[in-house]
Amino acid sequence: MFDFIKEFYLFLKIRKKYWLLPIIIVLFLFGGLIILTQGSAVAPFIYTIF
């Protein structure tokens, strides 16, 4: 995972696409959330966030 983060950081740096970073972080956070909460339990959890 560390290698991946390093490579992805280098990619953003070379492409000068730092503005994509917030989108990617949110995607990963929600992705992780869905995996951790095993899908079906995620809906009520999201409702409380918003």
Binding site: F8, F11, R15, L20, I23, I24
Partner: peptide, 13 residues
């Protein structure tokens, strides 16, 4: 694949 992902994200935005 990273470049492809970049294209996808930018297109959606």
């Amino acid at each position: 694949p990273f470049l492809k992902f970049e294209r996808l994200l930018e297109t959606y935005v």
